[in-house]
Design a binder for these strands. Structure first.
Lengths: 153, 153
DNA sequence: TATTGTTATACTCTATAACTATA
DNA sequence: TATAGTTATAGAGTATAACAATA
């Protein structure tokens, strides 16, 4: 209300690549959180369920996939397990380890949430010509390729 | 190590637009968090400082900019104020309100962090031809335009 | 000894509800 | 009454350090 709103018109127009990425990230993050919440999940819980969609995984493996410390993951898994969305199964050939797997309920919720996020993002991008969407996608894929973020080891 | 790693080659290659955005978001989020942490800040604190870079702002205004509830913001500002990075100044014409402003230390930290994040992202995108970077940037700008996320009201 | 996972502890982040002070 | 912020409270997310059990 003071003179705070008067000046900034310089940086607004010339948005750099990095700043664009950061803003895009905040937008996607918000969509992710909103849709998750609509399904009564936090972003982190939704992300865990989505990862498990590819199949059961051990704690250590999940730790790498989600970039979390062991103990953080223990709590995260505890909370979704308490709600019956995943189950810990003791591994048979290594009795220290366990595999975390989606339950039926968890599987449904994971897919619903994923679909909701996808729909929301597609609708946000509705204005973008298909060519642009494909170009952005392929650019992102190349970007991800560099940092070895392709889920597997 | 079971048969979990054997199958998934179908979804990997055909990455949709929405999934690409989500993966990109996770990557940027990680860069943001890592650089913030290197400057002894959380992502949220860094984001607050960066927003204040444009000038002081009232709590309610920040609440809109950061999409937080009033009380959440109170705590966030408390923590960075306690570290001498921002200061609350009581507004003169409305004695209920206050303006949050960066201190000198906060300003330096904000710029350092922002520069660090920018550098990291640019370096990640080093492999991308300039044309692609510009295309992504312009696509993102159009995307953001739709959702009125241009900082101002 | 090394690895897998959990516990204990401490902080940050977040929201909801109730409150204070000013407009 | 409405608005600007804070306080109280509760729960989620995170990390570090210490631990247990198994390899």
């Amino acid at each position: 209300m003071v003179d705070v709103d008067a000046a900034p018109a310089t940086e607004e127009t010339a948005l750099g690549f990095a700043d664009a990425l950061v803003r895009l990230t905040h937008l996607v993050q918000r969509v992710f959180a909103d849709v998750s919440r609509a399904h009564d999940l936090t972003s982190q819980q939704a992300q865990l369920l989505c990862v498990l969609t590819r199949g059961p995984a051990g704690m250590t493996e999940l730790t790498r996939l989600l970039h979390l410390e062991k103990s953080s993951l223990t709590g995260l898994v505890d909370r979704v397990e308490r709600r019956g969305l995943v189950a810990r199964r003791r591994s048979s050939h290594d009795r220290r380890a366990c595999q975390v797997a989606l339950t039926g309920k968890g599987t449904r919720l994971a897919h619903d949430t994923h679909d909701g996020i996808t729909a929301q993002l597609e609708s946000l991008a509705g204005e973008l010509p298909r060519t642009d969407r494909e170009l952005v996608t392929s650019a992102v894929v190349r970007l991800l390729g560099d940092s070895g973020a392709t889920t597997g080891s």
